[in-house]
């Protein structure tokens, strides 16, 4: 009986003493933080991808509390930014949703191999070594640095050896753009109904050299530039570029391109020429 009593008392006293220490420590070392930071962090995607330019989601939430000016969570997009704005009680300007686009169509059939790579499976390492497995020194290596960089499982190397972006999963965080040593990937406007047009080539060699290396390369023939009535296409260094802020998705450039270097995505079949794409920016 006595022993039991002593144990209960002693343990109880240790417990009270420890609780007191914990209480005072919690009071003394308390960090004052804006409670809205926690609220914002809760609505953010929580992937800590760094696509916004801040160190993780909490860093972004912290910055949002200071000022919402020009902040965008590329992953959550407008939906999340609206929630953040509601928490902060301010208006937010909505941004266009973006998506990563692979500007190379040099699959094994289109772009013949001239040698075969046997080094470490990394585009960064291969690009330090040489120009690549084909005659094109600009195109995709297909070794998957972008796949590794993607935190959302939105990019995969397809059967033809080129990366394929999953529109649904892609959050335009830009990690793959940074990871690609060849700068093949670009963030472009997703477009209405995910319809978009882009030049699937970044080869800056002269037309003849490009043509020899790849059957779907841009040869800088200028036909698309002449065809475009919106001034959206520029040809520089033998390679065309479509400015997605000016493009109205009329698809005329796609029709004139002699090498089929211009890619259209998610359009209905060609015969039904409906200018429905024009009604939205």
């Amino acid at each position: 009986m006595n022993i039991m009593l002593i144990s209960v008392v002693v343990l109880g006293m240790i417990g009270i003493f420890s609780a007191a220490i914990l209480y005072f420590a919690a009071q003394k070392f308390k960090v004052e933080e804006d409670p809205r930071i926690d609220e914002i962090e809760a609505v953010l995607p929580g992937a800590n991808c760094g696509g916004c330019g801040f160190p993780g989601c909490r860093g972004f939430a912290d910055a949002c509390v200071a000022s919402l000016e020009g902040k965008l969570c590329p992953v959550g997009g407008n939906a999340v930014m609206e929630k953040v704005a509601t928490i902060l009680g301010v208006e937010v300007s909505l941004a266009d949703p973006m998506v990563a686009v692979v500007k190379c169509q040099g699959s094994c059939n289109n772009r013949k191999k001239t040698n075969s790579y046997d080094g470490a499976k990394s585009c960064a390492i291969a690009s330090m070594l040489y120009a690549g497995e084909t005659g094109c020194s600009f195109g995709c290596f297909g070794l998957g640095d972008c796949v590794e960089a993607c935190q959302f499982d939105a990019i995969k190397i397809g059967e033809d050896g080129l990366p394929i972006v999953d529109d649904e999963k892609c959050t335009a965080c830009g990690a793959c753009v940074k990871a690609c040593p060849k700068n093949v990937i670009e963030l472009r406007k997703k477009g209405p109904k995910s319809r978009r047009i882009y030049v699937g080539c970044i080869n800056k060699d002269k037309g003849a050299i490009t043509r020899k290396a790849c059957s779907v390369g841009c040869i800088g023939c200028m036909k698309c530039q002449k065809e475009c009535t919106f001034g959206a296409i520029t040809v520089e260094n033998n390679c065309a570029y479509i400015d997605f802020t000016k493009c109205r998705l009329c698809r005329k450039c796609v029709a004139v391109c002699p090498t089929k270097a211009i890619v259209e995505v998610n359009f209905p079949p060609r015969k039904v020429v409906v200018e429905q794409a024009e009604n939205k920016e």
Partner: peptide, 13 residues
């Protein structure tokens, strides 16, 4: 293991 491949890349970066 291709140690040098990676080390060389790391060195450059």
């Amino acid at each position: 293991r291709p140690l040098l491949d990676y080390v060389r890349y790391g060195k450059a970066t």
